[in-house]
Design a protein around this nucleic acid. Structure first.
Lengths: 138, 138
DNA sequence: ACATATAGTTTGATTATCAAGGTAAAGGAC
DNA sequence: GTCCTTTACCTTGATAATCAAACTATATGT
């Protein structure tokens, strides 16, 4: 099982490097890591209710309420009434929030482009296949 | 560049899933995420001085001092004098710290084993190659 | 119509974190 | 050797993120 150990090491290393990359990128902005992450999820997955957003972010709804308050005050997101469920709030990016998201996403793309600089298109396809399989197993 | 976008999505998804997996695993233990991460780094990379550890963890030495205090009190790590540099402290896992690390590492291995369940050995080798290339580019 | 479950907010306490300032030691420049 | 600068770590005070639990309003099932 040396192969497994090696893969584990590489995945952990990748995770740690991604983590510090994200931290350093966020430090350049006016927003915190938690705030950028919230924007990221809303930008990638689209508007959603508090409950769902809290689950995706891995925090309680109480925590999210506080974060959403800040982002609303910063003008990046808005609270909207849910059309069917009057208990629910739908959180949606404002135009400014969209801008922030696109800018951040572009940095991600640039990073991935750099990371795969020495990976051939065929290998890249294989990598994509592996990632799909792995993500499905979580 | 649709391929790039797709890879970016998959990597982000993988990162997020790893993150929540780690969080849920840590929640079962008596230690916090920051503490487990400290143990993880010491276990994988071996004993090192405060400065180096702080860099690997992405925190200031001030923050690390506080965390190390807690882990020393918990009996998982020890502060040792650096043999050459009398300003420096070498942080090292105790026997109990090693046990915690091995237990945590085993869970990582089990996870990776599950994740790669549907990946052939040949694909796995290719995946390892890709990860090595990507980690080198960070 | 009533009981129970769910969505979101508020509150109080805890933890992690940083920046800035302090101490001690190392490493050069002279 | 003596000073100056840099480095390593610790301490402190303030701030941000987080949770659990209590609360309000609405939905859902019996």
């Amino acid at each position: 099982m040396a192969e497994l150990e090696r893969l584990n090491r590489l995945l952990t290393e990748f995770y740690d490097k991604m983590s510090s990359w994200e931290q350093s990128v966020v430090k350049e902005t006016d927003y915190s890591l938690a705030q950028v992450h919230t924007i990221e999820v809303l930008g990638c997955c689209g508007a959603m209710r508090m409950k769902e957003l809290a689950e995706k972010l891995g925090v309680t709804t109480g925590t999210l309420t506080v974060q959403v308050d800040k982002l609303v005050r910063a003008g990046l997101i808005e609270r909207r009434a849910h059309p069917q469920d009057r208990r629910a709030i739908v959180v949606v990016l404002t135009e400014e929030g969209e801008v922030i998201h696109r800018r951040h996403n572009q940095m991600h793309l640039t990073l991935v482009e750099e990371l795969t600089r020495h990976i051939s298109p065929e290998q890249e396809s294989l990598l994509i296949g592996c990632l799909e399989k792995m993500n499905r197993e979580f």
